[in-house]
Design a protein around this nucleic acid. Structure first.
Length: 422
RNA sequence: GGAGACGUCGCAUAGUCUGGUCUAGUGCGCCACCCUGCUAAGGUGGUAACGGGGCAACCCGUUCGCGGGUUCAAAUCCCGCCGUCUCCGCCA
């Protein structure tokens, strides 16, 4: 949720942001009008209520006929109070509904849609397989011959876009996630294993029930949602709390299963485990003073890049365009690894600065000398199941084996090469 | 799944039976000042959040788990929900 005071004081900034995102401009004026209605109806209610309260005190002290007369007058007043209270509540609900639909203010992201991203840097060089004298195999091909990935049985058991990680595949995923957890711990993050089912309030508060509602699994019987990322639980973790951030940001590394319906992605990335309904992820999450948020964003990006370096992948960093940001994000950087068989980059990490947008909805504040203020929240990926795809493809060898990058060897019992089993 | 107890402004608790002076008391903690030649102890005052108004001092409103209801008036009475604890049942 954006700050209503910002909307009042500087509606043009909100308009400019809506413009950059290609979002609805009329929401701005609608919300301003609703705010006016809310304030005037609230003022009416409050003055009537003040009168009612003072009369209540007189009633309490009066006796006999005088009391009866006062009660008579109070009754009339009570009716009016109720009426205006109702009006104020309606006005407030209308404002909330409008504010909920306005996404976060864009901060520094390039204008335009998905294709208008800016490449900030490219790191490493993709291998030249032609020069090496063989044609690279894709991750599923490799995964099957290594006995690491079984999508056929995944589909048999659970349907399309499900898979089993088997043998060395399961070990490889654990290695990636454990390496991510260890690196986060070393950087001062608090490791967390989070709930993956959350209440509607939590899901709404984190901003995932807006335009992405179709992406989310819901358990109707229990009125719970399956999270698409531990960000949801971690953002809810300090909900309705006032934090002390004087010693710096609170950083959490969440480990969880993630569930995505992939409703709008029919026909996209159908082969292998690039785009699946369930995977695992280690996610960094930071509660941070708002003036430190941009710097914290850079720190999260740096931790992501260090993890990519540890698994020795060539990648680029992109600055996502405004129209491609989630509703909570003011700015987003993705790290995309090179995928040799598709000759394109594949998103492996994504870090968003949500400024105060998410924290305002979740009501997370910090104590400062001047009182309380809403904190900023940021998140970023440190490792996922999908990394297996890039690791297998980039480190494959002519004989069908896959070299284990040094950063993962300690997590695979020193294993240096994954050998085909068939 | 069943029964019971409980949920109060950082923490602990009073207040609920018997509705009104609750503008929510007290202790602890915290902050400021005073006193004390150091320390310990003591004294005085202050100390919830949110919203609206005001240059400001300040004023008004909301919030006693959440949502309804009764009433002129609800922390207090009634209903529903959520959570915690205890016991029972069931499952691992």
């Amino acid at each position: 949720m954006i700050d209503i005071r910002l909307l009042r004081d500087n509606p043009d900034a909100v308009r400019a942001s809506q413009q950059a995102r290609g979002a609805d401009l009329s929401l701005v004026d609608a919300a301003l009008a609703a705010d006016d209605r809310r304030r005037s109806s609230l003022a009416q209610f409050e003055s009537l209520r003040a009168e009612q309260k003072s009369m209540g005190k007189q009633v309490a002290q009066a006796t006999g006929e005088e009391k009866a007369a006062l009660i008579g007058r109070s009754k009339e007043l009570a009716g009016q109070v109720k009426e205006h209270q109702g009006a104020a509540n309606v006005a407030e609900a209308e404002l909330d509904e409008l504010l909920y639909r306005i996404p976060n203010l864009v901060d520094g992201a390039p204008a335009g849609g998905e294709e208008n991203f800016v490449t900030l840097k490219t790191v490493g060089t993709p291998r030249d397989f032609a020069a090496e004298g063989f044609t690279p195999r894709d991750h599923l091909d490799l995964g099957e011959s290594l006995g690491a990935i079984d999508t056929a049985r995944g589909a048999k058991v659970s349907g399309s876009r499900f898979y089993f990680l088997t043998g060395v595949g399961a070990r490889l995923e654990l290695a990636i996630l454990n390496a991510a957890m260890d690196r986060a711990l070393a950087a001062g993050f608090t490791p967390m294993i989070t709930p993956t089912l959350v209440t509607p309030d939590t899901m709404r508060g984190t901003g995932f029930l807006g335009e992405h509602a179709d992406e989310i699994y819901r358990l109707e019987r229990d009125d719970l949602y399956l999270v698409g990322t531990s960000e949801v639980a971690l953002a809810g973790y300090h909900g309705d709390e006032i934090l002390d951030l004087s010693d710096g940001p609170r950083r959490y590394a969440g480990w969880s299963a993630c569930y995505r319906r992939e409703a709008g992605s029919h026909g996209k990335d159908v082969r292998g485990i690039i785009r699946v309904h369930q995977f695992h992820k280690v996610e960094m999450f930071s509660y941070c003073p708002v003036d430190d948020a941009a710097a914290e964003h850079q720190r999260l990006l740096a931790w992501e890049e260090a993890m990519l370096a540890a698994v020795e992948l060539p990648y680029r960093v992109i600055d996502t365009a405004a129209g491609d940001l989630g509703s909570s994000a003011a700015r987003k950087f993705d790290c995309e690894a090179w995928l040799p068989t598709q000759e394109r980059f594949l998103e492996l990490t994504s870090t968003s600065n949500c400024t105060t947008f998410q924290a305002r909805r979740m009501n997370v504040r910090e104590r400062t000398e001047g009182g309380t203020r809403t904190v900023a929240t940021l998140n970023g990926t440190l490792g996922t199941t999908r990394w297996i795809v890039a690791i297998l493809e980039n480190h494959q060898q002519a004989d069908g084996s896959v070299r284990v990058p040094e950063g993962l060897r300690p997590y695979l019992g020193g294993l240096e090469v994954l050998e085909p089993v068939r």
